[in-house]
């Protein structure tokens, strides 16, 4: 791996990573601390059918009568703000090369170095994954630390939290991989970000729709959130291997396709 490329890529992502990481960590602390109280105070309201349906839509799975601590704990990892921050970071970093570099005009300097395009792409992808890991680790640490201040019933066991972390990391990698594929085809970062965001929004809404409208279940596999179910992890206590493989597959396919497109395309900056 070329040290110059790594240094350049790190120099570009560290601040964004710190900002997103701090935001996510702060929000995890907030959720970990307030959700148990909210749950205790609103127990009767949570039995309402409409509330259950909304929670089911958010969790992406049947919750039945399981309105217990697991649901509260998993809510901290599927909250729209949490997903928005994780996806926002993945999209921000995934859209840098080449779309961001072409848009800013810096691609000429980057491509004047004697390094093949796949190598440049790989270095940026690895730095992106490392930065994503840092963001998620900050959230994980925050959640574990805040968990000390709540009742034991509302503390997530570290091994369960580890499984959710791995699932979320795979989700991050999949979003990053697909975004980098889109960015490889585009010369405008804003356009790449828009397309990636649009796909994720559609995915999120499809996941929501499936919970309200049973016929949509046939296409539920198209939603990326089908493969990220923290509540199921907490309920079953097992590794969601199938989901992890699907997300990793998306990450690998997106990244390879992006590398291939980037290696073969003409770069026009005007």
């Amino acid at each position: 791996m070329n040290r110059g490329l790594i240094e350049k890529a790190l120099r570009e992502v560290w601040l964004t990573t710190l900002v997103f990481g701090a935001g996510l960590a702060g929000f995890e602390i907030l959720l970990t601390l307030i959700l148990p109280d909210l749950f205790s105070q609103s127990a009767s309201m949570l039995q309402l059918k409409i509330v259950k349906t909304f929670l089911r839509a958010l969790m992406g799975t049947q919750i039945g009568d399981m309105l217990g601590p697991e649901m509260v704990l998993s809510l901290a990892w599927v909250h729209p703000v949490v997903l928005a921050l994780v996806w926002g970071h993945a999209i921000t970093l995934g859209s840098r090369l080449p779309a961001g570099e072409i848009e800013s005009g810096t691609i000429d300097v980057l491509l004047s170095w004697p390094l093949s395009r796949p190598r440049i792409y790989l270095a940026h992808a690895l730095v992106g994954l490392a930065a994503g890991t840092v963001v998620l680790l900050m959230a994980l640490t925050a959640s574990l630390s805040a968990g000390r201040f709540v009742e034991p019933a509302f503390r997530t066991a570290p091994d369960m939290l580890g499984r959710i972390f791995v699932n979320l990391w795979c989700l991050y990698a999949a979003v990053g991989g697909v975004t980098s594929w889109i960015a490889a085809m585009s010369s405008h970062r804003s356009r790449a970000v828009g397309v990636a965001f649009g796909l994720l929004l559609a995915s999120f809404l499809l996941n929501f729709l499936v919970q309200f409208w049973p016929p949509a279940e046939k296409i539920a596999f198209l939603s990326i959130l089908t493969y990220y179910r923290p509540l199921q992890i907490l309920q079953a206590g097992a590794w969601p291997l199938g989901d992890l493989l699907v997300l990793l597959g998306l990450a690998v396919i997106g990244s390879l396709a992006g590398a291939l497109v980037f290696a073969r395309r003409s770069i026009c900056t005007t």
Binding site: G105, T106, D108, V109, T269, T270
Partner: peptide, 19 residues
């Protein structure tokens, strides 16, 4: 073999943009 060419070349773009 673009990367080999670039090992031999010093290039200044017309519309230079830097980080």
């Amino acid at each position: 073999a673009g990367h080999r060419v670039k090992a031999e070349v010093g290039y200044l773009p017309g519309d230079l943009r830097l980080y």
